[in-house]
């Protein structure tokens, strides 16, 4: 497994809404964040969920979002953040 994104890379989460078992929470789809850690290869849970092998394993990343960019009218502090673990098949580059 080679991880496609490096730590610090800006990435966009796919704005996809497939039926069935999906491991990327609705509230981060279509949002942009930063890779803070590469957790390693994990078998694809969206295939495992249907009794398939889940191979090839996917890089799993920790993606950091600015919480105020996730929600309209966020009332917390502007420095607040949200971290979600996301598999590589849900990410694309958002580098300028």
């Amino acid at each position: 497994m080679t991880a496609r994104f490096e730590i610090g890379a800006r990435v966009a989460v796919r704005a996809a809404y497939p039926p069935g078992h999906v491991r990327t929470p609705f509230f981060v789809r279509g949002k942009t964040g930063v890779v803070t850690e590469i957790l390693g290869p994990y078998r694809n849970p969206e295939a495992l969920a249907y009794g398939r092998s889940g191979d090839p394993a996917l890089p799993l990343y920790r993606i950091l979002f600015r919480t105020a960019e996730l929600w309209d009218g966020y009332e917390g502090s502007s420095g607040d953040t949200t971290v979600v673990d996301i598999y590589e098949n849900w990410l694309s580059s958002a580098e300028a």
Binding site: L39, L60, D80, T82
Partner: peptide
């Protein structure tokens, strides 16, 4: 305090 960053971790995957 507002000056402290609140960081929420949504643990939905393998860790």
């Amino acid at each position: 305090p507002d000056a402290v960053e609140v960081r929420v971790h949504d643990s939905t995957a393998d860790l």
